[in-house]
Design a protein around this nucleic acid. Structure first.
Ligand SMILES: [Mn+2]
Ligand SMILES: [Mn+2]
Ligand SMILES: [Zn+2]
Ligand SMILES: [Zn+2]
Lengths: 146, 146
DNA sequence: AACCCAATGCAAATATATTGCATGAAGCTG
DNA sequence: CAGCTTCATGCAATATATTTGCATTGGGTT
């Protein structure tokens, strides 16, 4: 659990009514150390009580829309979701393992990106800079050589 | 047309027989100024002569596998494809317009990424660093305000 | 000729996400 | 309170992108 974030507050601060389902989704996303797919989130929620898959998708969409959650692309077909950057969470790159689909959060300093110039010169609206490392994670690498 | 690249050579250099279909796919990808989806590529090829959608997917997979073509994720659901970095094409970031789906190639210098440290310290295998800017392109931005 | 293999095609299946429509609860209006 | 509206949710159907299974074909090989 992220001790900085009160999820109800995060929701209302983003103009979203804190419905039980929204809180549950946000808890799963926020409490996890790495980003999850909609399907992962759904499966976790299903364990404790029933919720519809579509509801999960819709809630994730709203959370992304309102800047509470970040939608992250992977080297695979599904999006993953993590807490959006805020006062306590700096933007940072992710590592995606193409074998197991696990995504890791890398530290914000692991890799420096200078976007200054781009922001000044790009003739369109920039919403987000996503940096993703693709490869094979330590575990999968080991498993391969066995 | 990229005047540096001979596509037949690129294929054989990558241990791929230069079948007519492969050459056609690679021409479409290589001659285009920006990355295209499998579906875009299929539609373009269909115009000149018949080819199966699945063949396009399979060829793209082989080309990616053998390092001739790069698979690029977008803020949307489909992958885009562009020439893989080589002696004449440096790696570079892309801009993805979430309104029209158009992807732009940005110059390699538009944005500097220092991955040194990461390569040294990351305890897994790194295959690729992808940098993608998401937003709304100039055209779509203009259209919105009208 | 008989065999083999890789490339291709076509149909079906899969994975992921979205849409349309129904229901019910909460809040507001008069 | 009765009637109206809005919004969250569920369920079924649909859409989109991609993959798989299996058949065919054509070129090389024994
Ligand atoms: Mn993260
Ligand atoms: Mn490019
Ligand atoms: Zn892995
Ligand atoms: Zn656009």
């Amino acid at each position: 659990m992220c001790h900085h974030c009160n999820y109800e507050e995060l929701l209302s601060g983003a103009d979203l009514e804190a419905t039980p389902n929204r809180v549950r989704v946000l808890e799963v996303v926020g409490d996890n150390r790495f980003p999850l797919s909609a399907s992962d989130i759904y499966k976790i929620l299903e364990r404790s009580s029933t919720i519809n898959r579509v509801t999960v998708y819709r809630i994730l969409d709203r959370l992304v829309e309102n800047g509470v959650v970040e939608r992250i692309s992977t080297g695979g077909r599904a999006f993953y979701y993590g807490l959006a950057p805020n006062d306590y969470h700096q933007p940072h790159p992710h590592f995606y393992c193409k074998m197991c689909g696990q995504m890791d959060c890398l530290s914000p300093e692991s890799l420096t990106v200078d976007t200054e110039a781009l922001w000044k010169t790009y003739p369109g609206r920039i919403d987000k800079v996503e940096v993703r490392i693709d490869g094979i994670c330590k575990n999968c690498e080991k498993r391969q050589t066995e």
